[in-house]
Nucleic acid binder design. Structure first.
Length: 900
DNA sequence: TCTATATAC
DNA sequence: CTAACGTATATAGAA
């Protein structure tokens, strides 16, 4: 029989410092949990114990830490990042059926000592795992102390039976207590005897065996100061021995068999590991009898594939006047709709597309009930609308294109993922299983549980997984129904009801229409441009190889670094984690002295243009000759939207050659592009939110804001500001918005740090309310736990409570930037909805196509141009009422470059 | 899958 | 004292 015992806090502490800081998408720290569990699995595998328990101190102990005053032997309180993981690891251990033993008034050491003694008395082999050498006194010939050490080469384990200890230290484990009694241990508050250190302590105990024996033989000892001390401080030595002794008789009450090691891989534990996103641990749960995760809600799910049954089902919905239904549509990459799940909370059904139940029929039924007033709640509604549009007739599609998806498809639908995003925009994804867990407190299977390694799209192609697909869809519908109301209640409670109802949901429809429209792109022109780039890239390649004296992959920062800084011996290389940095700003400094650098920088620029834009965009052109990007509404932490496949929000504009890419986007026949962008929206938001009179005044006077800033910062008359001063002031303005540091600003504008600090100080003096405003943002975010926009949109900032300086600094910058960037995002979202809705309401055919954070692009029919211009101007400028005017710059053009 | 680099606002 | 400008996405290379 074998008993394995772990020292909970000690191993958790080891894991915390031994591993990089892991967090899950909710911002919860998990690194120590992960390390602990890995360590635990390793020991269980190696030791094959029959019995297993973990002991914790009741209260989080402090730890010695080598980086922190090691020589003083002081201890450091537990980092909050580690502290928060203590209850979590205990929760997981309990879920695994592992006894987590804590006792008020007793240390974990005493628990471990007592359990190991009992184990030995029962004839068991005992292993105690701890990072703490204090436990070595417990070693016997049956009790092994294992101390794992994390080294670069991996984890090494030191094992000590009594004889190993004696070999290493020259005293028995029990005698080690006496050693400590003499030498003391300041970090454990064991006083010891003054003047006796490690050497003397070991020598004496090795010779006499115990402090008592030493005391009895003091007369034989050579006269010395320490001997006098020892005699004088005998009481202290006795007390020290008591303090150093681990108690083997803690009154632990354990039920018979409770430490028996059973199946660790329980359903409950699995779900916790999933919740903490310990993805690398999940495979361990496979092939155990708990692999299938179920709860009994699924029992009531029903699949219907009988046409008349479906008919009745939809009739019932209409008849009973259901107001709200959760729904989910199943379709893979092929966009073929396989079925849909619907839930009213009581019953949840999956309608499978087969026989007379065509996708077309099903979609029209859904549209019908929605138009009849049943509010449908989906996950990723915008995508659902695309799936439905895909099966519509040409006439219906045309109507969607012209009149918009809201009126033509679902006039009255909501998206629960968008709602969940509002509650916490920093998460990676908003899936049904996650929201179910968070909002309803229930555990349901995720895609991976139901489909194994397959993704949903693959599962849809596999008939054997029909059951799983049905269950998945039903859960989505069930949770959409059940969670939406709760999510909304929280949104309302947080004062974000307006954002959801009046901004995000209308925006979803607006984005859908933008995606449906797409934007025309000249594929031929791109191909030609790509050719042109290739020619120049080849020239540069040859030039670079010639200068380097060999051929290598210029695209590989690693190879490039070696060539530049080792082979060519260029001075001034900076290092990254993995090698030399070859980032543009580093190389630029080296360019004047090294001709190869210029070629490399040009090569990089052209290679980027070619791969990402010239070549990358070509396959994005659809059969209609247009590019249909997807605008993501639940991605950014600040409330901005993002754009993918392709990303149309980072099309080049600054560099001369890059502008060519913008030319290939053009309006359809009979149209021009109207492009309008807000002028300095973030600084205007800053002026409004800070209430700073000087900044407000500058905007009100219609001044060039960077010049105005320069005038104040450099104490120069407005019309004598130099270009350099203006450029520097511009950088300061950006810095303020991003959460400035003197270091960053100095690097950006190429001045000393001290000088940069002066600029910042001058800035804060020039705009007196700014400083208090920014400080207020930080303290408010720290107090509330989140940053807030003018409209009440929130972003959690847990970093503000980090014990790590860098993370905390980051949190402060986030606290300053998010309200500004987020408010600007709110404003343009409002403007988008208003422009979009008004174009439709006024019967205009012109369409909003793109948003690039502060810019809107409208494909404008020439005969509507005047009207559209005024719609854009009015709606953008009046999107928000700030203490400074919102101004836009608007241009027309026959391509995107001209219009911008 | 992760890192480094590029693009945009 | 620390490190050092916010938000994104795409690509290529290295592992």
């Amino acid at each position: 029989m074998k008993l394995l015992l772990m020292d909970g806090h000690s191993i958790l502490n080891r894991a915390y410092y031994g591993l990089p800081d892991l967090t899950n998408s909710a911002g919860e720290h998990t690194g120590a949990i992960f390390g602990f569990l890995n360590m635990m699995f390793k020991f269980i595998e190696d030791e094959q114990p029959d019995n297993f328990a973990v002991a914790f101190d009741v209260h989080a102990p402090t730890f010695r830490h080598k980086m922190y005053d090691a020589y003083k032997g002081t201890r450091k309180p537990m980092d909050p990042e580690l502290r928060e993981q203590v209850p979590r690891i205990q929760e997981i251990l309990k879920a695994m059926g592992v006894p987590v033993i804590t006792m008020e008034g007793w240390e974990a050491d005493d628990i471990l000592g007592t359990l190991s003694r009992i184990g030995q008395e029962k004839g068991m082999d005992v292993t105690i795992v701890s990072g703490d050498r204090d436990l070595l006194q417990l070693a016997t010939d049956k009790i092994k102390i294992s101390i794992p050490k994390t080294k670069k080469t991996g984890t090494e384990i030191e094992n000590y039976f009594a004889k190993d200890f004696e070999q290493a230290y020259g005293v028995t484990p029990k005698q080690y207590i006496d050693v400590k009694a003499l030498m003391g241990d300041s970090s454990d508050n064991i006083p010891g005897v003054a003047g006796i250190g490690e050497k003397t302590a070991f020598k004496w105990i090795a010779q006499y065996g115990s402090i008592e024996e030493c005391h009895a033989h003091v007369s034989e000892m050579k006269k010395a100061k320490v001997v006098d001390n020892f005699i004088e401080q005998w009481d202290t030595a006795v007390l020290s021995k008591e303090l150093a002794t681990i108690n083997l008789n803690a009154p632990i009450e354990l039920e018979e068999g409770s430490t028996k090691l059973g199946n660790l891989f329980t359903e409950e534990a699995y779900l916790l590991c999933k919740r903490y996103e310990l993805k690398k641990l999940l495979p361990r749960f496979e092939n155990t009898d708990t692999a299938s995760v179920t709860d009994n809600t699924a029992d009531s799910f029903k699949r219907v594939n009988d046409f008349s049954e479906v008919e009745t089902f939809f009739e019932d919905i209409k008849k009973t006047g259901k107001a709200f239904i959760g729904a989910s549509i199943m379709a893979g990459d092929d966009k073929v709709i396989r079925g849909a799940a619907l839930s009213d909370g009581e019953s949840t059904v999956y309608v499978e597309c087969q026989g007379f139940i065509s996708a077309d029929y099903l979609c029209h039924k859904l549209m019908e009930i929605c138009k009849a007033g049943v509010r449908l709640c989906f996950w990723d509604l915008k995508n659902v609308m695309h799936l439905i549009t895909n099966i519509l007739s040409d006439d219906e599609k045309k109507a969607v294109m012209e009149k918009g998806g809201k009126s033509q498809i679902f006039p009255n639908a909501v998206d629960v993922s968008v709602a969940a995003y509002l509650l916490n925009p920093t998460k990676k994804e908003y899936t049904a299983d996650d929201v179910a867990n968070e909002m309803l407190g229930i555990i349901i299977p995720a895609a991976a549980d139901l489909f194994g390694k397959k993704k949903l799209k693959d599962a849809l192609l596999d008939d054997s997984l029909l059951e799983a697909v049905t269950t998945y869809a039903c859960y989505e519908a069930y949770v959409a129904y059940g969670a939406f109301e709760k999510v909304m209640a929280e949104i309302e409670a947080a004062g974000m009801g307006h954002i959801f109802t009046d901004i995000e949901m209308p925006l979803l429809y607006t984005l859908f229409d933008m995606e449906i429209q797409g934007i025309a792109m000249d594929k031929e022109a791109l191909a030609q441009f790509s050719q042109k780039l290739s020619t120049r890239i080849e020239e540069l390649e040859k030039d670079i190889y010639a200068q380097a004296g060999e051929e290598f992959n210029i695209n590989s920062p690693k190879q490039l670094g070696v060539i530049l800084f080792e082979k060519m011996g260029i001075e001034g290389g900076k290092k990254t984690k993995t090698g030399y940095s070859t980032a543009a700003d580093v190389l630029e400094e080296l360019a004047p002295a090294n001709p190869i650098i210029g070629s490399i920088l040009e090569y990089r620029q052209l290679a980027k243009l070619k791969s990402t834009y010239a070549d990358g965009l070509q396959p994005c052109v659809g059969a209609d000759g247009r590019v249909h990007s997807t605008f993501m509404q639940t991605v950014t932490a600040t409330g901005r939207i993002s754009s993918i496949e392709p990303n149309l929000q980072n099309i080049p504009i600054r560099m001369e050659l890059g502008k060519e890419i913008r030319r290939v986007f053009y309006p359809k026949d009979g149209c021009v592009f109207l492009d309008a962008d807000y002028s300095q929206i973030e600084l205007r938001v800053l002026a409004h939110m800070s209430g700073d009179d000087n900044l407000i005044g500058a905007f009100k006077a219609g001044q060039d804001i960077h010049r105005s800033t320069a005038s104040l910062v450099f104490n120069t008359p407005f019309d004598q500001v130099t270009d350099l001063q203006r450029r520097s002031a511009k950088a300061v303005n950006f810095g303020i918005v991003y959460g400035i540091s003197a270091f960053g600003l100095a690097k950006d504008i190429g001045v000393g740090r001290k000088e940069a600090q002066e600029y910042i100080d001058n800035y804060l003096k020039a705009y007196p309310k700014m400083h208090t405003f920014l400080e207020g943002l930080k303290s408010s975010a720290k107090e509330k736990g989140y940053a807030v926009t003018l409209y009440g949109r929130r972003r959690p900032v847990p970093e503000l409570n980090s014990s790590n300086f860098m993370n905390r600094q980051f949190g402060e910058r986030v606290a300053m930037n998010s309200p500004i960037q987020g408010t600007a995002a709110d404003i343009i979202k409002i403007a988008m909805v208003k422009v979009h809705d008004r174009l439709l309401a006024e019967g205009l055919k012109s369409k909003l196509l793109l948003q690039v954070h502060d810019e809107l692009l409208v494909e404008t029919y020439i005969d509507e141009q005047e009207k559209v211009e005024s719609v854009i101007r009015e709606e953008m400028e009046n999107a928000a009422e700030l203490s400074v005017k919102l101004e836009i710059d608007m241009n027309e053009g026959s391509n995107w470059l001209e219009a911008h």
